[in-house]
Amino acid sequence: MSELNNHMEECLSIVRALSESIEEGNEDEVDRLLDEITKLRESSLFQEVGKLTRQLHETLNSFQVDSRILSLAESDIPDAKERLNYVITMTEQSANITLNAVEKALPISEQLKEQSSSLEKKWDRFRQRQMPVNEFRELSGEIGEFMVWTARNAEHLHEHLSDVMMAQDFQDLTGQIIRRVINMVQEVESGLVELIRISGQRMITVEKSGANKNSIEGDGPRIPGCESHKDRVSGQDDVDDLLSSLGF
């Protein structure tokens, strides 16, 4: 208000000086004062343009939030679904590789146990000198075969254990994928919060203008199935949902 008064007083003083100058016939002074009035006009014009520019800038910023959310919904979320499906595939593969290797390795360890305990019994009899020469020849052949078998199967065990180890690489790869999805979810969350903040402001202004038009009159309890009551909440849960959708 005082700004406006200042402005008016400034105008008034210039106009008074102008009329004096005209009466005096001072042409230079008249020109100078006219210029001054024009400048006053221009400065308030600049202020208006400034305000408009600011509004435009803010609107464009809110558009940027909207378009980011659009790209999240259009590409990032389907992409995240793909990524998570890939995580399921990879963990399943690793589990299968591991289980296959274990299923191959277990019989080897069982055979190893059986053969060595059978040889041990015979070896004990030999050490106690209870074994005839013929039988010892047989045992010596068995020991030879057992050593060849052990060497070969030790290699197989090594292979199976290596398979189990390599199958654990899923933890690194799926971990990286899940980290990225977590980052995306966080971005969606902050985008939604921002959107609610912006649209929440608009909703508040809409409510205000609506309230001005037709002030809230009592309308009685909600009637189920009533066409004009369609815009009403159906219970406390709806109220809570609505509030929570607005960020409360």
Binding site: S162, M165, M166, Q168, D169, Q171, D172, G175
Partner: peptide
């Protein structure tokens, strides 16, 4: 050098094999 300890262990074991 790897941020996942499982991957470091895998590489470490492979290197021992070699």
């Amino acid at each position: 050098v790897d941020d996942f300890s499982t991957m470091r262990r895998i590489i470490k074991n492979l290197m021992r094999d070699l």
